[in-house]
Amino acid sequence: MSDTSIILMIFGVSAVSLLPRMLPVALLSRWEFPQLLQKWLSFVAPAVLGGLAALSILAPKGYIHISPGNLYLWACIPTFFVAIKTRSLFYTLLVGIVTMALLYNFAGI
Protein backbone atom coordinates (compact mmCIF):
# COMPACT_ATOMS: atom_id res chain seq x y z
CA MET A 1 0.00 0.00 0.00
CA SER A 2 1.40 3.43 -0.94
CA ASP A 3 1.94 6.19 1.61
CA THR A 4 -1.04 8.13 0.26
CA SER A 5 -3.26 5.06 0.49
CA ILE A 6 -2.16 4.43 4.06
CA ILE A 7 -2.98 8.00 5.09
CA LEU A 8 -6.36 7.80 3.30
CA MET A 9 -7.04 4.48 5.04
CA ILE A 10 -6.21 6.02 8.43
CA PHE A 11 -8.62 8.92 7.86
CA GLY A 12 -11.37 6.55 6.74
CA VAL A 13 -10.92 4.25 9.71
CA SER A 14 -10.81 7.30 11.98
CA ALA A 15 -14.22 8.46 10.71
CA VAL A 16 -15.97 5.12 11.09
CA SER A 17 -14.47 4.41 14.50
CA LEU A 18 -15.08 7.83 16.05
CA LEU A 19 -18.56 8.63 14.73
CA PRO A 20 -20.33 5.74 16.53
CA ARG A 21 -18.78 6.92 19.82
CA MET A 22 -19.39 10.63 19.44
CA LEU A 23 -22.70 10.89 17.58
CA PRO A 24 -24.97 9.45 20.31
CA VAL A 25 -23.44 11.79 22.89
CA ALA A 26 -23.76 14.77 20.54
CA LEU A 27 -27.35 14.03 19.53
CA LEU A 28 -28.92 12.60 22.67
CA SER A 29 -27.39 14.76 25.42
CA ARG A 30 -30.44 16.95 25.84
CA TRP A 31 -32.95 14.15 25.52
CA GLU A 32 -34.73 12.78 28.58
CA PHE A 33 -34.69 9.00 28.25
CA PRO A 34 -37.97 7.18 29.01
CA GLN A 35 -37.89 5.06 32.19
CA LEU A 36 -38.06 1.71 30.42
CA LEU A 37 -35.23 2.63 28.05
CA GLN A 38 -33.12 3.76 31.00
CA LYS A 39 -33.66 0.42 32.63
CA TRP A 40 -32.71 -1.36 29.41
CA LEU A 41 -29.58 0.76 29.07
CA SER A 42 -28.63 0.01 32.69
CA PHE A 43 -28.22 -3.64 31.68
CA VAL A 44 -25.89 -2.81 28.80
CA ALA A 45 -22.77 -2.56 30.99
CA PRO A 46 -23.21 -5.95 32.74
CA ALA A 47 -24.04 -7.54 29.38
CA VAL A 48 -21.04 -6.03 27.60
CA LEU A 49 -18.66 -6.97 30.42
CA GLY A 50 -20.07 -10.49 30.61
CA GLY A 51 -19.42 -10.86 26.89
CA LEU A 52 -15.97 -9.29 26.95
CA ALA A 53 -14.84 -11.31 29.98
CA ALA A 54 -16.08 -14.57 28.47
CA LEU A 55 -14.43 -13.89 25.11
CA SER A 56 -11.14 -12.70 26.57
CA ILE A 57 -10.83 -15.88 28.64
CA LEU A 58 -12.41 -18.52 26.42
CA ALA A 59 -11.27 -17.07 23.08
CA PRO A 60 -8.03 -15.26 23.92
CA LYS A 61 -6.59 -15.60 20.42
CA GLY A 62 -9.77 -14.74 18.54
CA TYR A 63 -11.22 -18.23 18.26
CA ILE A 64 -13.05 -20.21 20.91
CA HIS A 65 -10.67 -22.44 22.85
CA ILE A 66 -12.34 -24.30 25.70
CA SER A 67 -9.86 -26.92 26.94
CA PRO A 68 -7.53 -27.54 29.90
CA GLY A 69 -4.70 -26.31 27.66
CA ASN A 70 -6.14 -22.79 27.72
CA LEU A 71 -4.05 -21.03 30.38
CA TYR A 72 -6.46 -18.09 30.52
CA LEU A 73 -9.10 -20.43 31.89
CA TRP A 74 -6.85 -21.41 34.82
CA ALA A 75 -5.61 -17.88 35.45
CA CYS A 76 -9.16 -16.57 35.69
CA ILE A 77 -9.96 -18.69 38.77
CA PRO A 78 -7.71 -16.91 41.33
CA THR A 79 -8.39 -13.62 39.52
CA PHE A 80 -12.16 -13.96 39.99
CA PHE A 81 -11.64 -14.93 43.61
CA VAL A 82 -9.44 -11.91 44.37
CA ALA A 83 -11.82 -9.56 42.52
CA ILE A 84 -14.76 -10.71 44.65
CA LYS A 85 -12.79 -10.74 47.93
CA THR A 86 -10.81 -7.52 47.62
CA ARG A 87 -12.94 -5.50 45.17
CA SER A 88 -9.67 -3.88 44.14
CA LEU A 89 -8.67 -3.52 40.50
CA PHE A 90 -5.02 -3.24 41.48
CA TYR A 91 -4.83 -6.53 43.39
CA THR A 92 -6.95 -8.28 40.79
CA LEU A 93 -4.60 -7.23 37.99
CA LEU A 94 -1.55 -8.11 40.06
CA VAL A 95 -2.78 -11.61 40.90
CA GLY A 96 -4.02 -12.17 37.33
CA ILE A 97 -0.77 -11.13 35.69
CA VAL A 98 1.49 -13.00 38.14
CA THR A 99 -0.63 -16.16 37.87
CA MET A 100 -0.48 -15.97 34.09
CA ALA A 101 3.29 -15.46 34.08
CA LEU A 102 3.78 -18.44 36.43
CA LEU A 103 1.48 -20.66 34.38
CA TYR A 104 3.12 -19.67 31.11
CA ASN A 105 6.64 -20.28 32.34
CA PHE A 106 6.12 -23.31 34.58
CA ALA A 107 2.88 -25.11 33.78
CA GLY A 108 4.43 -26.65 30.69
CA ILE A 109 1.15 -27.07 28.87
Binding site: P46, T79, L93, Y104
Partner: peptide
Protein backbone atom coordinates in the same frame (compact mmCIF):
# COMPACT_ATOMS: atom_id res chain seq x y z
CA UNK B 1 3.17 -13.74 27.24
CA UNK B 2 6.24 -14.57 29.32
CA UNK B 3 5.57 -11.77 31.78
CA UNK B 4 1.84 -12.40 31.96
CA UNK B 5 0.92 -8.99 30.55
CA UNK B 6 -1.50 -10.54 28.08
CA UNK B 7 -3.74 -11.32 31.01
CA UNK B 8 -4.05 -7.67 32.04
CA UNK B 9 -7.19 -6.98 30.01
CA UNK B 10 -8.99 -10.25 30.85
CA UNK B 11 -8.21 -9.61 34.53
CA UNK B 12 -9.60 -6.10 34.19
CA UNK B 13 -12.80 -7.32 32.53
CA UNK B 14 -13.27 -9.89 35.31
CA UNK B 15 -12.82 -7.28 38.02
CA UNK B 16 -15.09 -4.71 36.36
CA UNK B 17 -17.70 -7.40 35.80
CA UNK B 18 -17.65 -8.07 39.54
CA UNK B 19 -18.02 -4.31 40.14
CA UNK B 20 -20.99 -3.69 37.81
CA UNK B 21 -22.99 -6.65 39.04
CA UNK B 22 -25.08 -5.08 41.79
CA UNK B 23 -28.20 -7.20 41.85
CA UNK B 24 -29.25 -10.70 40.82
CA UNK B 25 -30.69 -9.56 37.52
CA UNK B 26 -27.34 -7.95 36.59
Amino acid sequence: DKIGLNFALPAMYICLLVFVVGKRSD
